[in-house]
């Protein structure tokens, strides 16, 4: 079973790029041959190029919600989004719509195992590094995500490891 862990964000928008930072940490920690770690600055249709063909998908991305505090981690499943979640994207196609579109067109779409949302607040500015507050919390956030992904990953095939 091939798995993709995808970090998303904008590398020049400071905390918006937290998903990319988490992906970098995961990439250093994971060495399973059946797990790939990728980064993307785009969503929408562009994600087809990255995710089609995988069996399982995890996404790590920045998020902003009304009551969230910077560094809070939320885990969002595909079922949670009904009527409440809208992932703004290039031309309005959110990840869940993308999954539906792919299935409708009979592409080999992965199972979206989880979306990890990291709260970044509303004060995003241009910058190539995370804010000090989020940077300090980054290791703990990454540990939590890695532990969760590890618990959900199917065991690797012995012949492939």
């Amino acid at each position: 079973m091939r798995t993709l862990i995808l970090g998303m964000g904008n590398p020049i928008l400071s905390d918006d790029g937290v998903g990319l930072s988490i992906a970098n940490i995961i990439r250093e920690r994971f060495s399973y041959s059946h797990v790939d770690v990728a980064s993307s600055v785009m969503i929408g249709l562009s994600l087809f190029d990255l995710i089609v063909g995988y069996d399982m998908l995890f996404i790590v991305d920045a998020m902003t919600s009304r009551d969230g505090k910077t560094g809070d981690l939320r885990k969002i499943s595909e079922q949670d989004r009904q009527g409440t979640l809208h992932l703004f994207s290039s031309h309005g196609l959110n990840i869940f719509e993308l999954m539906n579109l792919g299935r409708l067109c009979e592409l080999k779409m992965p199972c979206l195992a989880a979306v990890y949302g990291i709260e970044i607040g509303n004060d995003v500015t241009f910058g190539s590094t995370l804010s000090p507050g989020l940077k300090e919390k980054l290791p703990a956030i990454a540990e939590e995500i890695i532990a969760d992904i590890t618990s959900l990953l199917p065991p690797p095939s012995p012949s492939r490891e």
Binding site: N10, T84, L85, H86
Partner: peptide, 13 residues
Amino acid sequence: LSCATHSLPGTMP
């Protein structure tokens, strides 16, 4: 309008 916004607002669009 945006600079590749990736936020999950969790609110009505």
